[in-house]
Design a protein around this nucleic acid. Sequence first.
DNA 1: GACATCCGTTCGCGTTCCGTAAGGCTCGTG
DNA 2: CACGAGCCTTACGGAACGCGAACGGATGTC
Lengths: 254, 254
Amino acid sequence: MATYAVNVSPAAPSSVGNEDLVGRRVLVVDDDPTVAEVASSYLRASGFVIDEARDGFAALQLAERIDPDLVVLDRMLPGIDGIEVCRRLRHRSSVPVILLTALGSEDDRIAGLEAGADDYLAKPFSPRELVLRVQSVLRRSIDEFTPQSVLEFGGFRLDPSARVATRAGAEIALTSREFDLFEFLAKHPNQVFSREDLLRTVWGWTYGDLSTVTVHVRRLREKIELDPRSPALLTTVWGVGYRFTTGGAPDAMV
Amino acid sequence: MATYAVNVSPAAPSSVGNEDLVGRRVLVVDDDPTVAEVASSYLRASGFVIDEARDGFAALQLAERIDPDLVVLDRMLPGIDGIEVCRRLRHRSSVPVILLTALGSEDDRIAGLEAGADDYLAKPFSPRELVLRVQSVLRRSIDEFTPQSVLEFGGFRLDPSARVATRAGAEIALTSREFDLFEFLAKHPNQVFSREDLLRTVWGWTYGDLSTVTVHVRRLREKIELDPRSPALLTTVWGVGYRFTTGGAPDAMV
DNA sequence: GACATCCGTTCGCGTTCCGTAAGGCTCGTG
DNA sequence: CACGAGCCTTACGGAACGCGAACGGATGTC
């Protein structure tokens, strides 16, 4: 089944799979042992490596030592306040922070965002949602700092940073949209996407004319398919959407 | 005529529109017929397909059979306690659970969190709010780009995300409905489903012509059975329905 | 300012798929 | 063995869908 974790920015097509998240270090900061325990065990079950701190001071010290990939931070803490901890964390690193607020009050949210929190969760929260948010935020931050890798498959080569596509060394002249579409499909091969899916992820629209997708698929086919009349790579799945196959026959040469 | 993808709730930062939720299966578990009835009718009005159970045991059994997308679970149940039901549900699937608690007591909340509930609602609840919570939780649990697990059995291979079915490596050309039917049956082997069951789960209808199922079963048989005249995998259980056997003879040769 | 490029939209056509209806067959029961 | 209900098979019409071609507007370039 599918999903979405709250993404504020219009659906970024992430290439980071859940398996890339396994082993990441998460620091859980809460003075309530029960809450911390529940959160930790769920996160651990999802493959994260967990450290815990009971107050702000310990949190800062620990963060310094272990350099976590993400921090789950309670807003209300004995000693240094959660907001302040967040600010100080941010002062010397760009570690993502998820803030746990007492209630979804507007003030808390604003304060949290100002302090540099990446996301927040109102208490009482569901541990499963916490896991989803952690994964989502981590995915985003990994995306951001991972240099875009070049995609190679079946004679094609896609360079996202240069925005150049070649087949057997020869450049394929793609327009901007065509490249975006191609890139997304190439990053998620052997998966069917509906026109709505593509409109949301590639175009970043939540509504719109679906035939836009149809036409662009057609144009893309014209440039990458050997025989655009009977597509071999970018195939239509009737009543569902489109699927990109990198090369059922391994390395379908040109 | 243009076809539009419309997101009904622009307020929510999620990219999953409400239309994606229509037809999802919700299991409502409550021993009080009045409560169950109210909840069911409201959810049904919002486009969900509803099944009901009166106690924990029936709930677990039904969940096994129909594989719901979400469970609305009363905390107080005759026989097995709601919390325990939740825990057992979680034991073998990741189906989201919304717990109905007698009152927002702290103990209930903690116990629920530990058992893995996704959200709560204190009784008496507003049916309107229930619908909203169900939609919200479902939206969260839908992760679009995480490929689903591939099913393999007796020479067959079913890839739900690619929507490709193969036997011994050779692709079987299935239509959309045929694939859905095949997928559902393959996910619940050795179980008998009535035509009503299939119409509800695969088609997402609560009423309709049962012969629709009959015909599709026949069409599916034509494509997956070695001898469609005497089916070996998708067999008829007279007066009851259909059963799919992954390979009565272990690894039914090709 | 003229031109080329790209993008989103529109319309008509051919195809595919689905649901339903009708008749024949099969299985279980009395 | 006969009957009836349940199931299978076939055929068909309509609706949904995808495709191709072309148009007009917006944008950027020379």
